[in-house]
């Protein structure tokens, strides 16, 4: 079971408080985590990555184990600590004003 932390607007949209727990397919990657997230919460489709192309939206970042892993390939394995549930996979809305 992996743990995902969503930004404020996506928690509201998905109707969840706090962390989200997911079962994701092996190997655990950005892509499989997001696939599992969108499968469990269809309302999040299109809000983190685009429909069709699965391209990450510009103002979304991914953090894990205190690192920004946003620009790492979507099919690279995530750290073991995320896979074990010891650390969270964090979806971050980038700082932007207005």
């Amino acid at each position: 079971m992996i743990r995902v932390v969503l930004p404020h607007h996506l928690r509201a949209l998905a109707g969840v408080d706090g962390e989200v727990s997911l079962d994701a397919a092996e190997p655990l990657t950005q892509r499989t985590v997001l696939d599992a997230l969108e499968e469990k919460y269809p309302v999040l489709r299109g809000t983190i990555r685009d429909h069709g192309t699965a391209k990450r939206r510009d103002f979304i970042r991914f953090f894990a184990c205190g690192r920004d892993i946003t620009l790492e390939p979507a099919d690279d394995p995530l750290p073991d600590e995320v896979a074990s549930g010891a650390e969270v996979f964090r979806v971050v809305a980038a700082m932007a004003g207005g």
Binding site: P7, H9, L10, L13, V43, G46, T47, I48, D50, R57, D58, F59, I60, A93, A94, A96, G98
Partner: peptide, 8 residues
């Protein structure tokens, strides 16, 4: 919509 999350 927002710039972060696009269209809902």
């Amino acid at each position: 919509s927002t710039g972060w999350h696009g269209q809902v």
